[in-house]
Amino acid sequence: MADSDLANLSDQLALGAVLLYVVAMVGYALDLGFGRRRARAEAERAEPVEALVGAGGGGVAEAPPAEASAASAEEEGAERVERDWGRFAILINLLGWGAHLGMLVTRGLAAERWPWGNMYEFLSAIAFAAVTAYLVVLARYKARFLGAFVMVAAVLALGVATIWLYTPVGPLVPALKSYWIAIHVTAAIVATGAFTVGGAATILYLVQSRREERGASGGALDMLPGAQTLDRLAYKVTVFSFPIWTFAIIAGAIWADEAWGRYWGWDPKEVWSFVTWVVYAGYLHARATAGWKGRRAAVISLVAFAALLFNFFGVNYLFSGLHSYAG
């Protein structure tokens, strides 16, 4: 296949991925919106908790609460419908993920390099990392409730990338010709994707804990797990992403030493990745030792996520620094 055919294929796959994600998003939303009564949700709630703790070393399985088995026939019917929406959404999500992967691979083949040399490619790759992180969380912790929210983020990111940032396939500028792009940028992408999933869980945690405090019930939010579970999920995902982010920064510093002759020069990108790092470290610290817990810690983690987003959009478009591939 000629490079231009591959490039076209990549663009079509991007479109396909967006469409599939939109359908999956609707499916996940229906899954959240229909069916299960509170009792059901309650019963399922125990499940992710076990899974979360189990990751630390084989939790003890508990029998589901008694009221769960008392569901009437009518409810079971409703449940089947709802479960089917969930399955449908996951299936479409997986198809979208495949298209998304294909998009990145064909792009890389067409350009004959790592497909993250400009903002279009970079943002597409972050969206891919976020969806992948979600699928991992889905498999490990049965966190299907995050699906709708991650799909929204993925659709937004891919949409912004294709509409405003689109760049035709082309060679790298000399500044980016280095094997460090595979190390530094890949780490930044993986960490950003995972932080995004952590951010989604954190926002849901804040909403849910406020609701639980007020004793509110009803509506689609009943289908979410309890606040504690969400909080733990957010924590786990962030604990996973943080070392990768740290690694990305250190790799960036080594690369900067190689390319610009200094490992740290307070370039705007360096400043903001440092700020992001410190604030996430503050969150993890607050969570790991006594002191700030719960909502206050969650707010810190959202501040860190905001710094991360600002580093991407704000720094690349507002400031001129050495990371000036954004133009």
């Binding site: 020069g265 307070w266 705007p268 400043v271 440092f274 700020v275 410190v278 604030v279 503050g282 400031f319």
Partner: peptide
């Protein structure tokens, strides 16, 4: 540590003599 991070922010927004 937070203050170092906070203090570095104006350095990314305003132009710097060193750079």
């Amino acid at each position: 540590l937070f203050l170092v991070a906070l203090g570095s922010v104006p350095g990314s927004i305003l132009p710097q003599r060193g750079q």
